[in-house]
């Protein structure tokens, strides 16, 4: 009789334990499950919102999906480009004002899935962005440099060509903090 009770208790305990385990599993639900998130900031190419978007539009630009950007912002970008450089004709990529502005207004970073990935390395253009790319000088050159890059020489290079700490060739690549 005692044995039967003991067996029954064990069975009950085992059942309870398994039930509790199930409950624990529910308690361990992924803390991120079922939550809704709303976009606040957005970035494709470097300095686009900073340079091309007017103050009143900056928050809106961050909350405009790229598929809607060109329709909403291409004309504004072109006005801004001409205001920055009234003498703009074409740039070193052969893009006139409308083409260049239209390309920039859809603020995504293009990245090639094979071969060199770089913002600009003298040969490859807009195939990605590496840590060491001098992206600001590239953008200054495209905005101010004219068709062959020789216009406005004092505005096309900030003369800071590299980071203050060396990058690593192994993951996670960025330098340790100061």
């Amino acid at each position: 009789m005692k044995n039967i009770i003991r067996a029954g208790s064990l069975l009950f305990i085992a059942f309870s334990a398994s039930f509790l385990t199930s409950c624990d599993k529910d308690d361990d639900t992924n803390p991120f499950e079922g939550l809704t998130y709303q976009q606040e900031d957005q970035m494709g190419r470097p300095a686009i919102n900073t340079v091309f978007v007017a103050t009143a539009d900056k928050d809106d630009f961050n909350e405009t999906t790229p598929s809607a950007m060109s329709g909403k912002y291409a004309t504004k970008f072109q006005n801004q480009l001409m205001a920055l450089n009234a003498g703009y004709t074409t740039n070193a990529l052969g893009m006139d004002a409308a083409t260049f502005s239209g390309a920039l207004a859809t603020d995504v970073l293009n990245v090639a899935t094979s071969g060199t990935t770089t913002f600009f390395d003298g040969i490859n253009v807009l195939t990605g962005r590496t840590l060491a790319d001098d992206v600001i000088s590239t953008e200054l050159l495209l905005i101010f440099g004219g068709p062959d890059g020789s216009a406005n020489p004092n505005l096309t290079d900030d003369n800071v060509d590299a980071n203050d700490k060396a990058f690593s060739n192994t993951f996670p690549y960025l330098a340790s903090p100061h």
């Binding site: 976009q39 970035m43 494709g44 995504v108 990245v111 094979s114």
Partner: peptide, 16 residues
Amino acid sequence: GSAATLNTWAVTKRKI
């Protein structure tokens, strides 16, 4: 995927 070029961008989203 298999595209030769990807369009990529980063966003931050806050829990509401």
